[in-house]
């Protein structure tokens, strides 16, 4: 492989990967340090901050709050996103591309603005869900569903719809044809999409900013609030658990779908 890649590019790429990964390595080391904070050179390893995290009310409750919120988000995002992806793969109406772009748009639009809009909407309509888990839930669904649509859409693009049509023409009901033919073929794509929805919600910061309150605080917000004042190594220990969760999720995704194909350009 090395022969096709000029040496300079290889060196620059290694430097780039170091830049991308170094902060993550540092968080792991900071969470495992034996000292009061991470120093150079390091003072040795210990589990004291991991224990401190597991005993801290603040981070542990935030961790479980985020976990619960991510599970709730995952369920709705998977159902709504899969249904929408099915529609987008089967329709030919002219607004199809625009509709797809509309559903994917939360990924790139400012989360602070959408969070602010939802916050003002909850208050002005008197829905009573501002600064509750329900208000956060709605915001997170907006930001997680696009990932389900993308992943399931990729699985559907690889699925030959004539299989389902064959079942239909042989007399299957639409639901039966879907359940027996289509679903088994895209099932792993749906699972991968739901994992994405989970992690995106678990790490979501921007949209949560206006919607969280001291008693309903997701982990990123809790870490941010402490990080503004001091480097608390037990926050880094919480980070280790989050890093493990994300890495495990991505590895699981890789077992479910071909990541290479998923990330490659999906042809319409």
């Amino acid at each position: 492989m090395g022969r096709r890649i000029p040496l300079l590019i290889l060196v620059l790429a290694v430097a780039g990967f170091s830049y991308m990964l170094l902060p993550i390595v540092v968080v792991v080391l900071a969470g495992l340090t034996a000292g009061e904070f991470l120093t150079f050179p390091p003072q040795g390893l210990s589990l004291r901050w991991v224990v401190a995290f597991l005993q801290s009310d603040k981070y542990l409750s935030a961790f479980f709050f985020s976990f619960k919120l991510a599970l709730m988000t995952m369920i709705v995002a998977t159902v709504l996103g899969t249904a929408a992806a099915l529609f987008l793969s089967r329709t030919r109406f002219v607004g199809r591309a625009a509709m797809r772009a509309f559903f994917l748009s939360p990924v790139v639009l400012p989360g602070v603005v959408v969070g602010f809009a939802l916050f003002a909407f909850y208050i002005s309509t008197g829905m009573g869900i501002s600064r509750t888990i329900w208000g956060l839930w709605i915001g997170h669904i907006l930001y997680s569903t696009p990932y389900v649509i993308g992943t399931v859409g990729a699985a559907l693009a690889a699925f030959d719809i004539s299989l389902e049509e064959a079942a239909r023409s042989l007399g299957s009901s639409p639901w039966r044809a879907f359940r027996r033919i289509t679903l088994p073929n895209i099932g792993q794509g749906i699972q991968a999409g739901s994992i994405f929805a989970f992690i995106v919600s678990f790490g979501q910061f921007e949209v949560s900013l206006f919607l969280s309150a001291p008693n309903s605080e997701p982990l990123p917000i809790a870490m941010y609030n402490s990080l503004r004042y001091q480097f608390d190594p037990s926050a880094a220990a919480a980070g280790i658990f989050a890093i493990t969760l994300v890495t495990a999720s991505v590895l699981l995704t890789n077992r479910l779908v071909n990541i290479r194909r998923l990330l490659e350009r999906q042809q319409p």
Partner: peptide, 20 residues
């Protein structure tokens, strides 16, 4: 997988590392 994991990881955690 490395790129995807870095992308999906909570930004606050990565910034903690940057700040350290």
């Amino acid at each position: 997988i490395i790129v995807l994991a870095a992308m999906q990881l909570d930004m606050v955690i990565r910034l903690y590392g940057m700040m350290v």
